[in-house]
Design a binder for these strands. Structure first.
Lengths: 328, 328
DNA sequence: CTGAAAGCGCTTACAG
DNA sequence: CTGAAAGCGCTTACAG
C-alpha cells in the first residue's frame, strides 16, 4: 500500500505538499504539482479513505433505507439515488428493512459510529417517538412520507393531487362506486391521496362511503379479502383505485382466478408506474411517480444539508406525477 | 462526540483498557469491565469506525455490483446479500452498473481507496483483460457468471441442468420446434443452459437447429424482432424457452398485442422465478433460482475469504434450482 | 509557496 | 490484569 509519505519521498517534497496537490490547493506551484501528479500516476496512488475521513470527520457516505427492493418502485428510487451520489462524489449504502423494526436500528448505527454522514428514509412508517431523536441529531431527508410537525426535509409527489387525478379519471368515466384499496398503515401519502379521492367524488356529486375504502398489504390473500369484504356488505363496485401497481396486479390475478368477484374489464387505476403496469394483462392505468427523480432529489437535498449550503429553504419538495392511461 | 478517552477518564482507567472492553479481551478483570461498560452505556458511546478501520486496516464493508435493480431477480440477490452481511457484522454497498462500463470502475475504486474489503460481481460480463488485475489484487467473489480459467470463487445454479430441465419439460409435452431466446452477451450461464437444451433435444430425438436460438435484450422491440425473425425464415415454433421472466413477460405482451405472431397458449418457459412469473396472465412456467440464497452464499464466501478461513475448498458452488409449472 | 508538527480516535505489542 | 507509547494515513494551522 502506497501512502502520501511514499509519494512525498519519490517526488522530493513533504507529505503536506502531496496532500495539497491531491486536494487541489491552489497555492501549490504548478511545477511542483506536476511533479507530484506524475508520481501519483506512476505508482497508482489512491489516498486511504479512512485516514482522510478520520481527519476530516466526514465520510461522504450516506445511507438510504427502503422498505424493500422487491417492489420495483423502490428499486427505481434507489437507482436515482445512486446516480446522484455518484455525481457528487459521495457513496451510498442502500438497505432495506423488509418491515423489520430491528433492521432500522442497524442503519441508524451507521450514523452513530460515524460511518455515514447522513440518512434518507424512504416511505418510513415509524413513530416520531422512536425517530425524533435521530432527526435532531443527524442529517436526515425523508422520501415519500413526511411527518407533520417535524422540520425534516421531504421529497414526494403531491399525493392529494395524485389521488384526485386518479379518482377524477374514474368519475369522468361515469363510475359511481369506486373502491379504494390503501396500504395498511397510516401515512401522509395515504391521507393525501384519500383527500384527493374525496374531492373528486364530491365534485362529481358522489357521496363518500367509507366502507369502500379498505386496507390491504401487497399480498393476494389480503387484497382478495378486502375487496370481497366490500361485496359481502352488499355494496357495488364499478371501479377500483389501488395503492400500487403490485397490488393492482394481484387484483387482476384474483379476478382471473375467480377468487375476486369482479368483471375482468373493471376500471382499475393504480399508483407508481413501474414496469409492472406494462406487463400485466390487461396493462394498468396508473399514476406514474418519478421514481428516479425522487431518489435523485432526496440525495441532492441531503448533500445540500451536509454542506450547509444556505439553509435549505423549501422543506417539502413536490415532484410531478403523471396519469398514464392504459387498458384498465 | 465521545471517545475512548472520555470513557477512560470517567471510568478511571486507561484508553487501552476501554478498547479491551469493547473488543471483549478476556484478560480484563470482570469488575473493571463492568465499570467501563456502565460508562459506555451512560454516555451512549459508539466507537468511531474510521479510527478503528484505520488502525485495523479493514473496514468490514463489502461491495456488491449488480447489473440493475430493475429486474427483481437481482433485487432478490441483493436482499440475501444484505441479510448475510448484517448477520456477520459487515456492511454492504450495493450498486448497479446499469450496463455502463465507467460505473464499474467507480466500484472498484472503493477497493483501491481501502473503503471496502472485498467485492462481489453479480452477472458480470466483462473481459478478463479488464478485470484480471482486480481479481489478483482484491478479494472477489462472482455470482451467476464465472470465468473459465480464473480461480475466482463463484456461486451459481447448475445452468446446464437448469437448461436441460426446462427443455426436457417442453419435449415431454411433445414439442419439436423449441425456440430459445437468450441474452445478448456471451456468458457462462448462457453456455451452460444452451448445452442443457441441446442435451434434452438430443434425448428426445430432435435435431438441434441453431436458427431457433436467438439473442435479445429484455426489451420488447428486440424480443419481437428475434422471434419474428425465426418465423420469417419459414421455421415453425411450437414452444419457447427464454432467458428471464422479464423477457417472457414481454413475449406474452407481444403475443397479446399481435406484434408477435404466436398462439396465446404457446408453451413458454422462462428462468428466474421472480414475482413477475406470478403476475403475468397467463402465469409463467419458470425455472426458479434461489435468489436470496445466491446473494447470501456469495457474501458468506467472500467473508470466508477475507478471514482466510482454511482456504476455500470449493471454487464453484452450485445452488439448487426448481422448475415451477404454472400456466404456460 | 512549502515544511515540521500536531492530531483525528482508535488498537496493540511491550513492559510491568 | 493494566498503562504508556507508538502508529494507522491523512490534513491543516502555523511558521517561515
Amino acid at each position: 500500500m502506497s501512502s502520501v509519505k511514499e509519494v512525498a519521498e519519490r517526488a522530493g517534497v513533504s507529505p503536506a505538499t502531496v496532500s495539497r496537490v491531491i486536494n487541489n490547493d491552489p497555492t501549490v506551484k504548478p511545477e511542483t504539482r506536476r511533479k507530484v501528479q506524475q508520481i501519483i500516476e506512476l505508482i497508482n496512488y489512491k489516498p486511504n479513505q479512512f485516514a482522510k475521513n478520520l481527519r476530516k470527520q466526514a465520510s461522504k457516505i450516506i445511507v438510504m433505507v427502503l422498505p424493500t427492493m422487491n417492489n420495483p418502485f423502490f428499486a427505481g428510487i434507489a437507482r436515482g439515488a445512486q446516480a446522484a451520489t455518484y455525481k457528487n462524489g459521495y457513496h451510498i449504502i442502500t438497505g432495506t428493512t423488509e418491515f423489520n423494526k430491528w433492521q432500522l436500528d442497524a442503519y441508524i448505527n451507521l450514523l452513530r459510529t460515524n460511518l455515514a454522514d447522513g440518512i434518507i428514509f424512504v416511505s418510513l412508517h415509524a413513530s416520531k417517538d422512536v425517530l425524533g431523536d435521530v432527526f435532531n441529531k443527524y442529517p436526515v431527508v425523508l422520501c415519500n412520507e413526511y411527518f407533520e410537525d417535524l422540520e425534516v426535509p421531504c421529497v414526494t409527489i403531491d399525493n392529494h393531487k395524485a389521488g384526485y387525478d386518479a379518482a377524477r379519471e374514474l368519475t369522468s368515466r361515469g363510475k359511481k362506486n369506486i373502491a379504494y384499496v390503501t396500504g395498511t398503515r397510516k401515512s401522509s401519502s395515504g391521507a393525501g391521496r384519500l383527500n384527493g379521492y374525496k374531492q373528486a367524488l364530491s365534485e362529481a356529486g358522489i357521496d363518500y362511503n367509507p366502507h369502500l375504502v379498505v386496507k390491504a398489504k401487497s399480498v393476494l390473500e389480503q387484497i382478495k379479502d378486502a375487496i370481497n369484504g366490500i361485496k359481502e356488505k352488499g355494496l357495488e363496485i364499478d371501479a377500483i383505485l389501488t395503492n400500487s401497481d403490485l397490488q393492482a396486479s394481484y387484483i387482476l390475478k384474483g379476478i382471473k382466478d375467480r377468487t375476486i368477484f369482479l368483471p375482468p374489464d373493471i376500471s382499475l387505476i393504480s399508483f407508481d408506474g413501474t414496469f409492472v403496469s406494462e406487463i400485466t394483462n390487461p396493462s394498468l392505468t396508473t399514476v406514474a411517480q418519478p421514481m428516479y427523480e425522487l431518489g435523485y432529489k432526496s440525495v441532492e437535498m441531503l448533500i445540500q444539508k451536509l454542506q450547509n449550503k444556505n439553509h435549505i429553504q423549501e422543506n417539502v419538495v413536490h415532484l410531478p406525477h403523471q396519469l398514464i392511461i392504459r387498458e384498465t
